[in-house]
């Protein structure tokens, strides 16, 4: 019948609306459900695998593991990495190839991890740093090997 249908519609409508209001009302009264993270004060806990930028770890003697084989440069899809090599004469008088600068252009990097995978000597890793904003884009072009650094003993 029309009238009962009409009343039913009105009743059902109010019921469904109240259900929704009960849910939002529940969250309104339960402050512990808040999930906001107060970002600059509370630092996010990042996973160790989080891909933030490529870095080259150095040990305490300012030594890295990069042999300058350019495997990462070839693996990179975007031309992010540019390795400039030089020839060094080591203690025994042998000539040896070594890296001069390991140029890493952060603005081109897509954090795909292919360079880290390609590296045969584990010279580069992904770091967790994600706050990359700078005022000058030239700062995005980074040299990963520290000044005066050498290749670690025993890394070929």
């Amino acid at each position: 019948m029309f009238l009962t249908d009409y009343i039913k519609t009105v009743y059902g409508t109010l019921g469904s609306l109240l259900k929704g209001m009960r849910l939002t009302g529940y969250y309104f009264t339960h402050k512990k459900e808040i999930i906001t993270q107060q970002y600059p004060e509370v630092r996010p806990v990042l996973a160790e695998r989080f891909k933030g930028e490529v870095v080259m770890p150095h040990n305490e003697n300012n030594e890295h593991r990069c042999t300058g084989c350019t495997a990462c440069e070839l693996a990179c899809p975007n031309g992010t990495i540019k390795i400039v090599t030089k020839t060094e004469v080591n203690a025994e008088g042998k000539k040896k190839k070594a890296i001069d600068t390991f140029v890493y252009r952060l603005e081109l990097c897509t954090m795909c991890n292919l360079c880290v995978q390609a590296c045969p000597s584990d010279a580069i890793i992904m770091a967790n740093n994600f706050e990359h904003s700078v005022y000058d884009r030239r700062q995005f072009t980074k040299v990963l090997n520290l000044p005066g650094s050498k290749i670690m003993e025993g890394v070929e």
Binding site: L46, A47, R49, F50, K51, T110, M111, C112, N113, L114, Q117, M126
Partner: peptide, 20 residues
Amino acid sequence: EETCGARLTMNYIVPGGLMM
């Protein structure tokens, strides 16, 4: 993030399996 290292653009798959 924990498994693939990224939240949106994972790039976790390589031909032949997984990256890690």
